[in-house]
């Protein structure tokens, strides 16, 4: 049997991280050229940023809640929808099938393809924060930055994974867009309702269980205003409400990743 070094041809070492970043760079260039996806990535956030900027906030607590709601809704309409479209487009155009024949592992391929969308989600979260802070809203406090950033990063990954899962269920781009709408509305509605002060506490706790909605409470709670939207127990003085929010967010992200893996298809649906 011959060996892998049969031919004395030029070889070089390419690390997994390099492959992921190079594919991500290529995908970013392609995203800029895809007008529909670009429109989704820009128009949604701009509209929501506009709404956030004109929504009466008032107290620091209300503005902190606005940050949480704004970030989650922006991610739902951008990272999530863009992930649905990107996945279906790449799969139906058989680009995934092609890239599988490259030296990318399956994990590297998925990471490189979605990395730009995850980064866009994080950048948009900062855009929402900047707009609200510009209106006098609170920044996260010294202890709040780490969970705030963790929440934003996990939510961004989670929304992209949810988009990939939905794309796995849909046969083409049109069906995928329709399939994405119910979750989008559910999350947007729950995130909005959570910021309504007069809502009964029991309903708030139920809303917190809606996918990714705990991020609204987490981002509000970690601001310097420091007030949560939902009454959560502090267990033995150790498990803080922030950890409960993070755990819920992680759980939905894990469910989304699991579903995305289970429903994943490398080739067009027959």
């Amino acid at each position: 049997m011959s060996t892998l070094t049969t031919n004395a041809r030029q070889r070089r070492t390419v690390t997994p991280a390099q492959r992921v970043l190079r594919l991500a760079r290529f995908e970013t260039q392609m995203l800029v050229k895809q007008r529909t996806t670009l429109l989704t990535l820009l128009s949604g956030p701009l509209a929501i940023l506009f709404l956030v900027s004109v929504t009466p906030g008032g107290s620091p607590e209300a503005l902190a809640a606005l940050i949480g709601m704004g970030v989650v809704v922006v991610m739902a309409v951008t990272s999530h929808l863009a992930a649905v479209m990107l996945t279906v487009n790449r799969r139906e155009a058989q680009v995934l099938k092609r890239l599988r024949t490259s030296e990318l592992s399956s994990g590297e391929l998925v990471a490189g393809m979605y990395l730009p969308l995850v980064v866009v989600g994080v950048v948009e979260a900062f855009a929402v924060l900047a707009v609200v802070v510009g209106r006098g809203g609170p920044l996260p406090d010294a202890l709040g930055w780490a969970p705030w950033l963790a929440g934003v990063a996990i939510a961004s990954v989670g929304f992209v994974a949810a988009g990939a899962a939905i794309a796995g269920m849909a046969g083409n781009a049109e069906k995928a867009n329709w399939a994405a709408v119910p979750l989008l509305f559910l999350i947007a509605a729950a995130a909005n309702m959570l910021t309504v002060p007069v809502l009964p506490e029991a309903m708030r706790q139920v809303l917190l269980l809606v996918p990714f909605t705990s991020a609204v409470d987490l981002l509000a709670r970690t601001s310097s205003a420091g007030v949560g939207l939902v009454e959560l127990p502090v267990v033995a003085g150790v498990v803080s409400p922030v950890l409960v929010d993070l755990a819920l967010l992680l759980a939905w992200t894990a469910v989304s990743v699991w579903l995305a893996r289970r429903l994943w298809r490398w080739e067009p649906r027959g």
């Binding site: 892998l4 070889r11 895809q34 790449r90 155009a93 099938k97 092609r98 024949t101 490259s102």
Partner: peptide, 19 residues
């Protein structure tokens, strides 16, 4: 991975990013 590093494949149906 090692096999792909040493081989080239032309599959029957595979696409490119249209852009």
């Amino acid at each position: 991975r090692r096999i792909r590093a040493a081989s080239g494949v032309m599959v029957q149906e595979a696409g490119f990013v249209p852009e």
